[in-house]
């Protein structure tokens, strides 16, 4: 299964970025093969709609689950429409997050965790 973890850096030992739409990097991880692809977030500095753009990227990449700190309302709506599971409140390194995810320690979210523009603060 392909998942995405928002990350401050390009490697699996980077810290999880608490922002979704405006995170530094997206780490796309195939949980079966442990294959990793790091993509710099082109929307990190967008004037508006960063969450939508990032949600769009998840849909285009065929991600099944997103692990991050917080998700705003627009990103949430986009991810939900694409049928992607959202896990928030994730912290520590990407590696730790991935292990916890594999052990089923996270609970998926029913709604956005922050208001619009949270990642700009």
């Amino acid at each position: 299964m392909k998942i995405c973890v928002t990350s401050e850096g390009k490697t699996i030992d980077s810290n999880v970025d608490p922002r979704f739409g405006r995170c530094g990097f997206f780490l796309f991880i195939n949980t079966d093969t442990s294959e990793i692809e790091a993509v710099e977030n082109g929307s990190a500095a967008a004037g508006g709609g960063a969450g939508i753009q990032s949600g769009q990227l998840m849909a285009t990449k065929g991600v099944k689950a997103v692990l991050t700190g917080n998700v705003g309302p627009n990103a949430f709506q986009t991810l939900k429409a694409a049928g992607i599971e959202i896990f928030t409140g994730v912290n520590g390194t990407v590696r730790e997050a991935l292990e916890k995810f594999k052990r089923g320690e996270f609970k998926s979210n029913a709604g956005p965790t922050v208001e619009s523009h949270f990642g700009m603060k």
Binding site: I52, G55, Q56, A59, Q77, A82
Partner: peptide, 19 residues
């Protein structure tokens, strides 16, 4: 202005969507 999102279809069962 990122006012549109296009969710691609997922196989023949699940249609795509435009938000």
């Amino acid at each position: 202005y990122n006012a549109l999102a296009v969710i691609p279809p997922d196989g023949p069962q699940k249609k795509g969507a435009v938000l």
